[in-house]
Design a binder for these strands. Sequence first.
DNA 1: TCAATCAAAGACTTTATTAATCTATAATAG
DNA 2: CTATTATAGATTAATAAAGTCTTTGATTGA
Lengths: 132, 132
Amino acid sequence: MKYSKATNYALHTMLYLVSAAPNKPIGVQLLAERQGVSPTYLSKILTKLVKADLIESASGANGGYRLKRKQEEISFLDIIHAIEGTASLFDCTLNHSSKCLIQQEMVEAERQMEQYLQNKKMSELAGKMTVD
Amino acid sequence: MKYSKATNYALHTMLYLVSAAPNKPIGVQLLAERQGVSPTYLSKILTKLVKADLIESASGANGGYRLKRKQEEISFLDIIHAIEGTASLFDCTLNHSSKCLIQQEMVEAERQMEQYLQNKKMSELAGKMTVD
DNA sequence: TCAATCAAAGACTTTATTAATCTATAATAG
DNA sequence: CTATTATAGATTAATAAAGTCTTTGATTGA
Ligand code: SF4
Ligand code: SF4
């Protein structure tokens, strides 16, 4: 069990957008170069972030991506959910009883992690880290 | 990102062993039947649990598997780690700075989940759940 | 001792998921 | 219009998970 590389790219891209000038859209070309990934691939990842309403895109010359919300309103969890989806990490296909303790505990454990990630906002990274 | 099916099998097997008579080893045949999985495959999973010192095995007639520790000394996390390994969920291959906040937060979030799972022991399931 | 029973190990195959590419289409600024 | 940039979908490649098959080794008890 691992976070996908896509999530990694998404987090780094968001970090970069956070530390960039807020009103100048940044093209996928540049974002991809920095991370050593192909523009077309990063593009699909960013489209997910757009659909999750975390960033917005502009087509055409001088277009690109920029934050749609304030830094303090974007959490790690938002980004992760946008890429990985929101389904539970533990899936018991059978699911016979709502009182199943295994499932309950696994879900609660996950909730603990998500709670932490939800409280971590992009604003905490801004300035405190340089993107490379 | 999902827990593997192997983890699911491991948890269910442990639950079954917990609710079984502690001194009579149970063969993989029976354990596999209950879960609708092939004995040889389950066997490799159980071998991991043996190596993690959670259960012990006996070869030969009347052999099989049984708990090696007390119920209250086996946590969900023990089982999960035995199957999934202990590597971090988030891997940044670059890893340039020990001060990287992204990595720090991701690791800390995971720690929250693990802490919860470490406190959940098999003894909490015993009796409260029927295996099916 | 020997045959039946059971676990361990390793090589292998199949299936599923993730990662990535390629190509075509749509939007927009200048 | 045309250059630029995002979106979408189909497709391929790479990696990981799931599962099978076969052999070996240990143990029991007849
Ligand atoms: S016991 Fe719980 S986790 Fe297992 S199959 Fe039933 S509902 Fe799912
Ligand atoms: S910024 Fe942090 S997470 Fe990203 S590559 Fe560097 S060390 Fe890894």
